[in-house]
Amino acid sequence: MHFGVDQGDLAEVIVPNDLRSAKRAEDRIMAELARYGYDSDTSFAIKLSLEEAITNAVKHGNKNDPAKRIVVRFQITVQRTVIMVADDGTGFSPEKVPDPTADKNLERPNGRGIMLMHAYMTKVWFSETGNEVWMLKDRREATP
């Protein structure tokens, strides 16, 4: 249980390990945000963080292996959104990802996603195994 949510209370979408398939999970979540009347800035923050988590899962977690899959679980209410993204990979250590805004790393293609998840979501939590990320967005919180 994370952010006070029981696994059984989460909706689940399981998709093949590619970005076009994973977009289906995103479409479900964005439709729910619209149904609950989330504003543009909050919706932008959630879509961005979800895409960063899924892209990391597809490319770095599952290493673009088409035999693997992505699991997305979510709960959306009037007050907040909780999203979990998991892959079948062996995980990583988030603290070892270099700061993408350091001058020496500005031209590197990787490392921006984790920083953006932390910037745009209220809370972000990685499992010890590093192949599962949980994100919480409190609707009352301003975007950066």
Binding site: M30, A31, G37
Partner: peptide, 9 residues
């Protein structure tokens, strides 16, 4: 009718 999802253009 459900509202259109944001950032779906």
């Amino acid at each position: 009718m459900n509202p259109s999802p944001p950032f779906d253009s």
